[in-house]
Computed example of a mutant assay.
Amino acid sequence: MAGSGGGGGNLKNMVIAFLVPLPSILFYLTFVHPQDDHSGGANPVSSWCAAHPLLLANILFLINVDILFWLIGLLLSNNWLIDLYWTVIPVMLLHYFRAHPAAVANAVRSAAVVALTWVWSARLTHNYFRREGWEWGKREDWRFSEMRGQYGKTWWWMSFFAVYLSQQVFLIGICLPMYAVHSSDQPLGIWDLVATIACIVGVVIAYFADTQLHNFVTRNDKLKQLGEPTVPTLEDGLWEFSRHPNYFGEQLWWWGLYLFAWNLGQRWMFIGALVNSLCLGYVTVLVERRMLKQEHRAEAYKLYQRRTSVLIPWFRKSVPEPKQKET
Results as ranks from 00 to 15, higher is better:
residue 229 P to D: 00
residue 244 H to I: 11
residue 279 C to S: 13
residue 320 P to Y: 13
residue 212 Q to P: 15
residue 206 A to R: 06
residue 217 V to I: 15
residue 255 W to H: 07
residue 184 S to A: 13
residue 251 Q to F: 06
residue 256 G to F: 02
residue 258 Y to R: 09
residue 217 V to F: 13
residue 235 E to F: 04
residue 181 V to M: 07
residue 259 L to N: 01
residue 194 V to M: 02
residue 195 A to P: 00
residue 314 W to S: 07
residue 203 V to L: 07
residue 197 I to S: 04
residue 192 D to H: 00
residue 239 W to C: 01
residue 273 A to D: 06
residue 317 K to I: 09
residue 308 T to N: 04
residue 241 F to H: 02
residue 289 R to G: 15
residue 184 S to I: 06
residue 320 P to N: 14
residue 225 Q to W: 11
residue 200 I to W: 08
residue 312 I to F: 05
residue 179 Y to E: 08
residue 190 I to F: 08
residue 226 L to Q: 15
residue 296 H to C: 07
residue 282 Y to T: 06
residue 268 W to R: 00
residue 222 K to E: 13
residue 207 Y to D: 10
residue 302 K to N: 13
residue 303 L to E: 11
residue 258 Y to W: 14
residue 245 P to E: 02
residue 198 A to I: 03
residue 209 A to M: 12
residue 305 Q to Y: 10
residue 306 R to A: 14
residue 213 L to A: 12
residue 258 Y to H: 09
residue 227 G to K: 11
residue 235 E to K: 05
residue 220 N to T: 14
residue 233 T to Q: 10
residue 179 Y to T: 08
residue 177 P to K: 07
residue 241 F to G: 01
residue 268 W to H: 09
residue 183 S to G: 12
residue 315 F to V: 11
residue 190 I to R: 03
residue 182 H to R: 08
residue 209 A to Y: 05
residue 189 G to T: 09
residue 206 A to N: 12
